[in-house]
């Protein structure tokens, strides 16, 4: 395993500032550094005895070094409607904490004598707020993965998908890619898998990691969220996609709209986004199997274009509004629509 440095100190507190002075904000995994930071400030927030928190962050280390995560990171929690990449990464790490410790009761404490519950989650709890379950919920992902682990299937099939299919997935890493590979590898467990998906209001009939036949019906209370991926066809008429900040920013459901396309021959290809909603600031990012290809980054309103010389294959990307990158969390734009085309 690659070296892992876990930075813990009794001075580590939930302050934003100088990490070398203990101002680490929260317990977290830092992908560029490949390091974990753990809170230790007594009577404020300590995590060295909150074992699930430590295991959760180790789960992120595992993802980054042995699997793949396309998560945007940032703040998240139970009941939130998240970007599905964030939901999968956090749901996996929550579930993994329960698997590693063999305890489904995730507990995180804070405050005087560490006597206040900050977060409590029963990873086996099938119920939940019906309005917040689905493919965009870390609660739903953690329930499904932990239940699979506790079933006759066990950990090995989960591990196999994470270090193989999920690692090289053509799509973004979401519950759809995970389930797609899990079903392909484990036909004997289709009924088990489908029962868990149904319990969390996630489609059981997606035919691939894109849900390309648009079988998902749970839009999370936001009509803009479906289909999960928009397929672009070179030369086809532009179509409208919309993003919004209804559930917050910068990593919430439908802050970013997913696109994908397949090309058969070498050549120059352009993804173009025109502004439909006055003031919109379209940004485009293109990736291939988890690696950035290129991006068009506008910071003022106007059309955005991204022209690339591409080789045959499948590419996946996202279109979003620059203003939704803010970490100020407030709803600032409402719905923003763009006309998108590939040529």
């Amino acid at each position: 395993m690659p070296q892992l440095l876990i930075n813990w100190s009794i001075n580590n507190r939930p302050a934003i500032g100088d990490p070398s002075a203990g101002e680490i904000d929260t317990s977290h995994y830092n992908p560029p550094e490949n390091q974990i930071y753990i809170l230790g400030k007594e009577n404020v927030d300590t995590d060295e005895f909150d074992h699930h928190v430590v295991a959760h962050e180790w789960g992120h280390y595992f993802e980054a070094n042995f699997s793949r995560s396309d998560s945007l990171g940032n703040d998240h929690g139970p009941g939130e409607k998240l970007d599905p990449r964030v939901a999968f990464s956090e749901g996996f790490s929550n579930a993994f904490s329960g698997m590693a410790i063999e305890d489904p009761n995730y507990v995180d404490t804070m405050g005087a004598k560490q006597g206040t519950i900050r977060v409590y989650m029963n990873l086996s709890y099938i119920n939940g707020d019906p309005a917040s379950i689905g493919w965009f919920s870390e609660d739903s992902v953690q329930y499904i993965l932990y239940a699979l682990y506790r079933s006759n299937m066990g950990f090995n099939p989960i591990y196999d998908v994470l270090v193989n299919g999920q690692k090289t997935a053509r799509s973004f890493t979401t519950i759809y890619s995970f389930i797609s590979f899990l079903k392909a590898n484990n036909p004997a467990y289709l009924a088990t898998i489908d029962n868990l998906l149904t319990a969390k209001n996630i489609t059981t009939t997606a035919i691939d990691e894109w849900d390309s036949t648009a079988t998902e019906a749970n839009n999370g209370g936001n009509a803009n969220t479906l289909p999960v991926y928009n397929k672009l066809i070179a030369g086809a008429a532009p179509f409208q996609i919309c993003v919004d900040d209804k559930f917050g920013i910068p990593n919430k459901l439908k802050n970013r709209s997913f696109i994908y396309f397949e090309i058969a021959s070498n050549g120059n290809y352009t993804i173009h986004a025109d502004v439909v909603t006055v003031g919109g600031v379209p940004n485009i990012r293109l990736t291939s199997k988890g690696q950035d290809v290129d991006s068009a980054n506008n910071s003022t309103t106007g059309p955005a274009s991204l022209t690339e010389t591409l080789t045959p294959g499948i590419y996946v990307g996202e279109v979003y509004d620059y203003r939704h990158l803010s970490t100020n969390h407030t709803s600032i734009t409402g719905e923003v629509c763009f006309n998108v085309k590939l040529y």
Binding site: N30, H56, G73, N74, H76, S93, P250
Partner: peptide
């Protein structure tokens, strides 16, 4: 945007 623990 690092990956932190769950929160309210």
């Amino acid at each position: 945007s690092y990956k932190g623990k769950p929160s309210a």
